[in-house]
Design a protein around this nucleic acid. Structure first.
Lengths: 239, 239
DNA sequence: CGAGAATTTGATATTCATCAACCTGCGTGG
DNA sequence: CCACGCAGGTTGATGAATATCAAATTCTCG
């Protein structure tokens, strides 16, 4: 359901009923993907954007040497490739990290929004800008934080993003990525990833069993991460 | 002069004369900044966007431990904080890396563009999306490329971006960053930065003396970097 | 020429990758 | 029900990459 996207937008600004109806009307055909299946392939030129209705997906690139780097994690209620509407050519792939349900939005419908719905256009633009801010924070994590701090930061961020769309249960959330996939997020080896997770466990900051992460001490986790949620633009104001 | 911005936009799509005039008309008051001066401060809520007319600037964040990470380098003809028009609160600072000239654009003028000039709006949106793509590529560099490869990649990227706005001379370009500032780009120590530069020199891939970088072997540099310019969207097409 | 900044070099400690092995849980086929 | 295979997770050992500390050298500019 597209209502999850509305939760995301309404967290940042109020939407008129007409605007909500426009968004509901453009959500087209739905499709399911299974874990590890490519949702969008690098190098292609899509003519629809993909809205993630349920599940986890990731944007990634693969180096010539064959190493994969995940550049973004997407959760329910997010556009995974709204940027391709204007970029035209996919410069990276998008993969389902769990079973996913998506809805497609045709580019002509997006174009119509930019012609007739300026405020809605600004909110869609904002959506891509927030993800740009997340990218910047990830760059800081990769460059200037310890790996333990980096992992803590990712967990803080995911927790808040999932909370906005109601996908947290207390301090816990469902998180189906394997340690190997998480290593591709941090850009480190699987073995080292495992040890970094153990460091957070040893400090009693989190538990991470099977596929749910539980935050045991939010204050201290935030402090280890050097986490400041400003970049997530979680406040509603006129945009 | 704002014409440099036009070069950037026209590299991606054609602009009507009316659209160019709109852009010229919104470029307001100009101001100069000296090297190391903050152009925009983290945590503030600007009411203008800043267009870099000349010089080099960077977006950066500082961790609680005091380490600086540069998340983007900006060159002449680029908006350095167009994103703040919708994000509202600066989640990072912007610093002049050389003496800079900028022009300010008031948010109400940007808002007018989103109301009346849909195609121009899409191109401004595109501008922020291209920088999002650059962020993604930087994440890949930080996570999965060797430092030598990372530096080579940054040089390839800067060369092409500078070429678009006519700021290259053959295979050379003016580049006033110190090795210490460059270390804050790659997220490594100054000493290691120095050794990585020497590695590229030893391989006869570049020279970097005083403040100009010269590419000696584009093919091989690109190959060391694993560089694919797709993410820069350098082709003009209807958007 | 002298002072300060930027670059370079050397030595050592820490972080991280790699290789190799082992363990655990879970589903499948007999 | 059990044997088996397999994926994900864990551990240990070792070497390479990178940070840190300290100092020397070169460059720049007044």
């Amino acid at each position: 359901m597209i209502e999850t996207l509305l939760l995301n937008l309404e967290q940042r600004d109020s939407l008129s009923d007409a605007e909500k109806d426009v968004l509901r009307s453009i959500a087209g055909r739905e499709k399911r993907f299974t874990a590890n299946e490519d949702i969008v392939t690098e190098g292609t030129r899509p003519n629809t954007s993909t809205m993630l209705l349920d599940g986890f997906a990731a944007r990634y690139k693969v180096t010539p040497e064959g190493a994969r780097q995940i550049t973004a994690i997407h959760i329910a209620g997010e556009f995974v490739d709204l940027h391709a509407f204007l970029l035209k050519t996919m410069d990276h792939g998008i993969v389902a990290l769990s079973n996913c349900t998506v809805a497609f939005v045709d580019y002509p419908d997006l174009k119509t929004i930019t012609e007739d719905w300026p405020h809605l256009t600004r909110l869609l633009w904002l959506d891509t800008l927030i993800h740009g801010g997340i990218h910047r924070e990830w760059i800081v994590s990769m460059g200037r934080r310890s790996r333990t701090s980096h992992l803590a930061h990712v967990i803080c961020e995911l927790y808040l993003r999932l909370k906005v769309v109601g996908h947290t249960q207390g301090w816990a959330f469902h998180f189906p990525l394997s340690q190997s996939e998480m290593a591709d997020v941090l850009g480190i080896s699987l073995v080292h990833m495992n040890r970094v997770i153990q460091a957070l466990r040893r400090e009693n900051l989190i538990t991470w069993t099977k596929d749910t992460i539980t935050i045991l001490d939010w204050q201290r986790l935030q402090s280890v991460a050097g986490f400041d949620p400003t970049y997530l633009s979680l406040n509603a104001e006129p945009r």
